[in-house]
Design a protein around this nucleic acid. Structure first.
Lengths: 338, 338
DNA sequence: CTTGCTCTTTACAACGTGGAAAACCTGACG
DNA sequence: CGTCAGGTTTTCCACGTTGTAAAGAGCAAG
């Protein structure tokens, strides 16, 4: 089978521990011994058994990241960033997806999906506060985006209300008055959708603009299809928005699709704004104005927070980390420069 | 620290092995003993240490999957499918990305990126045949899509020439004559881009249509931006295609973006076809006609092949697996039904 | 009351590694 | 020439688990 320290030791005529010392760069090894052992290592192609090392050390060097859906580009791009950043810190990232289902999120948070890991980063959708309080797992957990909780865990998310205010203000600034809101419904008052809705409502109210029910379309999920259907319902119900504020870019893409089918021009007839700044938003017949969370900063904050817990600071108070965001204006609100 | 078998054994007044037997559902345990032990397990919240189990068994129950880019939706969707399918077989998938860089691909194939795994699935871009022949790793490897190799590894990919022929034929069928090809350049004759180019050329020639250099635009990569630039170059050079055959959907999306900027209508002036059937292709102002590889079948074939090797059939001849594909016609070639 | 059988439980060893501490070597010094 | 200090190498053990083999318990048959 695989070559172990024992095989190298026998071949080199030294003890197992000496080989281990060479492998780990222990100082007190004579150059001759080191050379001799190293030669055998190369010759046999020895590679340390990480499983054994992990068992011995009690650490695996792996962290798990769970997002709702990998095929949501925002999460794919975010996962990319986490993997990249963690790799620089010699951590391997085990990527998982929960489908946004509560049972899967609980399983993940408990450490039942990926079990050979030192810590967890979870981007929850349906997870409840009580799930967190009842959490049995032993590995540190960091929460990402979406919901807000009272449980004692570090939480990384942009300031959703402020970001939504920025987006809504932009629409007002370009002269829109009847601004619809399209977003995922979650009963809980502290879901992200609700935070963004609040930002929208605040700005609308401050500007004396309508926020009636007829301007709000809820969706089941966060997909292009959800966005397409929501706008269709909105238009069918007789609402005549001159702008739509979308919960995220995917919904915005779907919304623009329906607008195109209905013969409405973007942004001339209806301006559209999204959230996430996924790559897709920079292409398409009409590029999409959006709120761009600094994904690298999110990835860094979450990973750093987790690794700090791992380093032993488990007792410090849970923190609330807010990476920055930026408004990126594109054609869907300001039109194409001619 | 964490609860181990030893703790449970002490508390329950039985041997460590008996607890192990209960945990593993060993048959010959009296109901009373089982109950007693199970109670202590629940009470203490014991959970098996998988690292130790892995060390003992020599298997980790994890496989690694490396794709070029996670934020390429095709790969994200494919990864989704692999994770899903493998989970059903009680395997955890460790997801990684290589950036399409040869050094990273080699590192991955050698098992140096993810090292606590039983097997590997790699979707290579730049990897060379010699890299595979010189491969030192011990874990079984399955190759996915893209390139073709002579090395003794299972390989899963659709029939790219046939698929490309299907796509090109479709363009011919709808009456297009000057069909451009936009695709990533790879010097090697057996790169996927070359296979698709061949399919295009065959169909063109068979129909007496031009295949001159002026109709072929090479790109550095596979992104929307690459597609956008390629079409710009094509148009600037004076070519007047009435259709473009794109290496993949991302390139097609970029291509359509440039066409829109130039005031060309799709499909009226220029028809567009892609490859991959990413979700994005079903939205956008103009939906995209594409070749849809059966992603679930790809995921299944690759995972099954790998697990068969793991099960011991390491000596059987390397196989060439070809999941199916389908032409999905949408607006970018046949227009919008009125 | 022994023998032999089955069912249940146990002791032991090992997977590959690294920490702790003991053992070994060499050379300097009294 | 013995002692000690220093670096170097080794021995021993434990991490938590499970396979192997063997011991123990119970019971029916002789």
């Amino acid at each position: 089978m695989a070559i172990s320290l024992k095989d190298v030791a026998r071949q080199a005529g030294v003890s197992v521990k000496t080989v281990s010392n060479v492998v780990n760069g222990y100082r007190h090894v004579t150059p001759e011994t080191r050379l001799k052992v190293q030669r055998v290592i190369d010759e046999l192609g020895y590679r340390p058994n990480l499983t054994a090392r992990h068992l011995r050390k009690g650490r695996t060097g792996m962290i798990a990241l769970a997002v709702p859906e990998l095929h949501n580009p925002y999460f794919a791009e975010l996962a990319d960033a986490v993997i990249e950043y963690a790799a620089g810190l010699d951590y391997i990232v085990l990527l998982d997806h929960t489908g946004g289902r509560r049972d899967q999120e609980v399983l993940f948070a408990q450490g039942f999906r990926a079990r050979v890991i030192d810590g967890l980063i979870l981007s929850p959708i349906e997870l409840e506060n009580e799930d967190l309080l009842a959490r049995g797992g032993d590995a540190p957990l960091v929460l990402l985006g979406e919901r807000e909780y009272d449980a004692p865990y570090d939480h990384v998310a942009i300031d959703n209300v402020a970001a939504a205010r920025t987006a809504a203000s932009h629409l007002v600034d370009i002269g829109r008055r009847r601004i619809a809101f399209i977003g995922a419904r979650h009963g809980r008052a502290r879901a992200t959708a609700h935070l963004r809705l609040r930002g929208w409502r605040e700005v609308m109210t401050e500007n004396g603009l309508p926020t009636g029910e007829e301007l709000v379309a809820v969706t089941d999920g966060y997909t292009r299809e959800d966005g397409a259907q929501a706008v269709a319902r909105l238009l069918d119900s007789g609402a005549r928005p001159d702008a739509v504020f979308c919960y995220n870019d995917l919904i915005a893409v779907g919304a623009m699709r329906t607008l195109a089918e209905r013969g409405l021009r973007v942004p001339d007839d209806v301006a559209v704004i999204g959230f996430d700044d996924i790559e897709e938003s920079r292409y398409g017949a009409t590029t999409l104005t959006t709120i761009a969370p600094h994904k690298r900063a999110v990835a860094r904050a979450a990973t750093d927070a987790l690794l700090e817990r791992l380093a032993g600071d488990r007792e410090i108070d849970p923190r609330r980390l807010q990476p920055g965001f930026a408004l990126v204006t594109r054609e869907s609100t300001v039109g194409r420069p001619s």
